[in-house]
Amino acid sequence: MYNFDVERPTSIADAVQAMSKEEAQPISGGQTLIPTLKARLAAPSVLVSLTGIEEMKGVCMSDDGRLCIGGGTTHSAVAAEAAAHYPGLASVAARIGDPAVRNRGTIGGSLANNDPSACYPAAALGSGATIVTNSREIAADDYFLGMFTTALEEGEIVTEVKFPIPQASHYEKFIQPASRFPLVAVFVAKFSDGVRVAVTGASNDGVFRWTEAEEALSANFSADAVAGLKAEGDMISDLHGTAEYRAHLVGVMTKRAVAAIA
């Protein structure tokens, strides 16, 4: 690692202030950032730690029936605290990485990083969540802009994520055996006004909504409804799976997710 200073603000306001420094970068759980720093692939001069900001932690229900999760809430906290309100989401959190990673990694960090194989982006996009930052609210549909790219501006921090709660949801994940990230994973959420299907791991464009499947499922919510569909797009091809295989897995994972809740 290159050396850097560490700031540990205790409020969002102080964090935003600290982020105004030159070459400042936020660090939340650090489960992706620290390995990146070890490989010297990033060279911040200041790391602004978000882990000491209590107002960014915790899970609660808002008056409008959305589940609100502080950006600094760890995966293990979400797994435990969201289970009663939004079991589909809790199940996503409970299967990210491994237990030690879940005790540090946060939802805000994951969404800000937008790894093309991360779990949370699928849950956020599949739920139609709203990403709240220190300065604005961004709909998930407008937030994910491609691999490692989001609508966040320089210095903007994910402070909270608001999830509408579907009637039913399921996350079906097929792991890449080395990294244990999804090779392909699909989050299916059934709302009263339609179905959302979000796919991670598969595309060079990062997380995406599989609209053909959504339409088919909104008309007929059954595994059979997606049986004949084939996901299109710029699929990732690497040593763990060809593009064709990933496209196939998108269909299988979607079908299984639907079967789990239909």
């Binding site: 890449q176 055996p177 080395a178 990294s179 244990r180 690497d238 040593l239 763990h240």
Partner: peptide, 16 residues
């Protein structure tokens, strides 16, 4: 080297 770390070189884990 494409499999240059545990991100791409798959080591058996307990669940495998």
């Amino acid at each position: 080297l494409l499999s240059a770390s545990y991100m791409d070189y798959a080591m058996p884990r307990a669940s495998d």
